[in-house]
Computed example of a mutant assay.
Amino acid sequence: MSVRSTRTSTKNTLYMKFPILFCFLFLFIALSEGKHEVKHMLLAKLKQGISEDEIEGYIKQYANLVNLVPSMKAFAWGKDVSIENLNDGFTHVFESTFASTQGIAEYLSDPDHVAFANTLLPQLDKVLVVDYMPTKVKL
């Protein structure tokens, strides 16, 4: 028997000895595809002349999308507080959390989101959107 046939034989034996284990492993991989948390970051520079009350109203409307759009899991926001002056004019950051990239696709086409976007976007001088999957670093 050659070395090659021994390796193949060993591999086949593992599959034969543990078929349920391999089925569960395959199922786990298949179910976990596309199921990673995704962050949707919107950086904005609001137009001059918008009052703080108006800004607060837009932020409340944005935050309320969590109650209206099923795929949106969380929302947070903040103003730029950096002392590095590398913000490129962006003044506000809005972060939405989704269970998957599919959730973002559902959000983007949701009528409540579309209506809100049509209200907010004309109030912005500048906008940048980035979607990413947070990755933990193991040290």
Rank of each mutant, 00 (worst) to 15 (best):
E52F: 14
V137L: 11
E33A: 14
K47C: 10
S51V: 07
L31P: 03
L65T: 00
D80S: 10
K126C: 06
K35T: 15
K39E: 10
Y15T: 11
L121C: 02
S71W: 06
L42K: 01
A115H: 07
L124D: 08
V137I: 12
V129E: 09
Y62P: 00
K17R: 15
V66K: 08
R7N: 14
D88A: 04
L21E: 09
S32K: 06
L128C: 07
K11R: 15
E37H: 03
F116R: 03
T101R: 14
Y62V: 07
L108S: 06
F24W: 08
G103A: 02
L27T: 10
S96N: 05
S9I: 05
G49V: 01
Y15P: 04
Y132G: 06
S32C: 04
D110I: 02
S82M: 01
N12D: 14
G34A: 07
K11L: 14
K73W: 05
Y132S: 06
I83W: 07
V137G: 09
G78W: 04
E95R: 15
G34D: 04
F75N: 02
V3M: 11
F26A: 08
E52D: 15
L14W: 06
K79C: 06
Y58H: 09
F24E: 01
E56V: 11
D80C: 05
S96E: 07
E54M: 06
L42W: 02
V3G: 13
F94N: 00
K136Q: 14
L14N: 02
D110A: 06
E106S: 11
Q61A: 10
V130D: 05
V38H: 02
E37C: 04
L21D: 08
S5W: 14
E37N: 04
L86E: 02
P19C: 01
M72R: 03
P111H: 03
E54G: 05
Q123M: 12
A30N: 11
I55E: 13
E56M: 10
P70S: 00
P122E: 00
A117I: 07
A105F: 09
L65F: 00
F75P: 02
K136H: 13
L121H: 07
T119G: 02
F90S: 01
A99S: 12
I29Y: 10
G89M: 03
T6P: 03
K73E: 12
C23A: 15
K17M: 12
L120A: 07
H92E: 03
N67P: 05
F24V: 06
E56R: 13
L139K: 15
T97Y: 05
L128F: 10
H92D: 02
F26C: 10
Y107K: 09
I83M: 09
N85R: 14
V129T: 12
S109Q: 12
A44M: 13
L42G: 01
Y15M: 08
E52I: 14
L68C: 01
P19Q: 03
K47R: 15
E37P: 00
K60E: 11
T13L: 15
